[in-house]
Design a protein around this nucleic acid. Structure first.
Length: 109
DNA sequence: CTCTTGACTGAGG
DNA sequence: GCCTCAGCCAAGA
């Protein structure tokens, strides 16, 4: 594994790991913090390899607070249950009061 | 090198 | 609030 190739993915993992309990953020927010605001898709792509790591991928949703990545988790509602376990209200794959639980790395980090 | 795919986003209707 | 279109960028075939 070459560090150069892991750079982007690693950064994504590092940021995701720092997401506070009971908070969520968006792919675009992480991408922006990494200086790649146009690479939000890459963040999601990177999360694809987050399995086996200490990355709370369930705390990362799209800009609408929609659990766009729930299909990448086991079962059909694991991601939602994980969030609700942390105090985040989720209804029909949508984070309720998204703005209140939103955590922006560019602002908080 | 070219083409496809995608856990995205912003703008427009 | 919902749907559609176009732009973005990296990885894999």
């Amino acid at each position: 594994m070459k560090p150069e190739t892991l750079n982007f993915f690693d950064k994504v993992y590092e940021v995701a790991k720092q997401i506070p309990y009971g908070k969520v953020t968006s792919y675009g927010a992480i991408a922006k913090y990494l200086g790649a605001a146009r690479s939000a898709r890459m963040v999601g792509y990177a999360m694809n390899g987050s399995h086996g790591k200490d990355v709370p991928a369930h705390r990362v949703v799209n800009r609408n607070g929609l659990l766009s990545g729930k299909h990448h988790f086991e079962g059909t509602n694991l991601m939602q249950q994980l969030l609700e376990s942390e105090g985040v209200v989720v209804i029909d794959n949508h984070v309720q009061n998204f703005k209140a639980v939103f955590w922006d790395p560019s602002e908080e980090l």
